[in-house]
Design a protein around this nucleic acid. Structure first.
Lengths: 142, 142
DNA sequence: CCGCGCTAGTTGAGGTTGTCAACCATCCGC
DNA sequence: GCGGATGGTTGACAACCTCAACTAGCGCGG
C-alpha cells in the first residue's frame, strides 16, 4: 500500500527533525557544565541520581550505560566537590549508596533547569501545537 | 492567564519526553560504533561530513562544536582507516579539504541507517499521529 | 560449617577525547 | 611587502572509558 510508505516516511522525517532539535541544544548543555565546574559526564551522572533516594553505584552504571569502574571515577569527582556522599548500605556491605548532598541537590536543580529548557524552535509553536505534541509523545511513551 | 501556564507546561513536558526518547536510543548508537570499528566521536565526525562535497576541517570543527586540534586527531583516525582523505584546497593552500572515500560513504550510510532508525515508541504510533508529529516539527523548524 | 561461585566496587594499564598554548604557513588589507 | 588574522598541527595535560585483575562480601549446596 502507498499508505505504508507514506507512514514510514512521516515518522522518519519526524525523528530526524527531533535529532536536529537536540543538536541545537548541545552547546548550551556543554557550557552550563563548565559554568558549574563539572565535566559533561559528571553532569549527567549527577542528573541520573535521585536526591530523594540513595542509589547503589551499580544502578548508576546501568543508568549511564557504562562500566562500573567508570562511575568510580565520576563519583570521586562529585564527592570531591561535596555534591555526593558514599554511604555503606546496611543490607549488604559490598554496595555503596550514593546520597546527594544539599549542595548537590541545588546543582542538580540548576542542571535540570537547563536540560529541560525548551528549545526556541518548540517554544515558538502555537499553544495547540505544543499540546498536540505533548499528547502524541505521551501516547508514544505510554 | 491560566492558559499561559498550561502552555508552558505542555511544551516542557513534550521536550522532556523527547529527552527520554533520545536516551533510549543511546545504547544502540554506541553499539553500532563499536560494530563499525569506530569510536563514537569518529562516528559523529564521519556523519557530519558530506560525501558529495569536500569540507574544510574548520567547518567540521564548527559543526562538532569543538576545537580544531581535536578534529585533527579525529580525522587522523578516519584517514588511517581509509574512510576519509585530506586533500589540499586549490583556492587556499592553508586549508585541507576532507573528501569521503567510497568505503567512507558506505560506512556513513550504515551509520545514518542506525541514527535515523525510528525508536519503537514512535514507530508504534498510529499513522495520523506520526503525520501530525512530523507536521508540528516541520512548523517548529521552519 | 565450609567452600565455591557470584556480585559490588576499586585499581591500574592503555587508548581516546578534549582544551589550551605555541607554532608554522599562508592569506589579505594596507 | 609588512603585519595582523586565519587554518591546521603539535605537545602538554586532564578527563573519560573499557578491560582485566583484584578484594571483600554475599549465599547456596554439601
Amino acid at each position: 500500500m502507498a499508505s505504508t510508505v507514506k507512514h514510514r516516511e512521516a515518522v522518519q522525517e519526524a525523528w530526524s527533525l527531533v535529532g536536529r532539535l537536540f543538536w541545537q541544544m548541545r552547546p548550551r548543555m556543554l557550557s552550563v557544565a563548565g559554568e558549574l565546574g563539572l565535566t559533561p559526564p559528571q553532569m549527567f551522572a549527577l542528573r541520573a541520581l535521585d536526591p530523594e533516594r540513595p542509589v547503589p553505584m551499580r544502578e548508576l552504571a546501568m543508568e549511564l550505560h557504562c562500566d562500573s569502574s567508570n562511575v568510580t571515577g565520576l563519583v570521586d569527582g562529585l564527592e570531591a566537590q561535596g555534591l555526593v556522599e558514599r554511604r555503606p548500605a546496611e543490607h549488604d556491605r559490598r554496595v555503596r549508596m550514593l546520597v546527594v548532598s544539599e549542595r548537590g541537590a541545588q546543582v542538580r536543580r540548576r542542571i535540570n533547569e537547563v536540560v529541560e529548557e525548551v528549545p526556541p524552535a518548540l517554544a515558538s509553536l502555537g499553544v495547540e501545537d505544543q499540546r498536540a505534541l505533548r499528547d502524541i509523545l505521551r501516547r508514544a511513551l505510554q
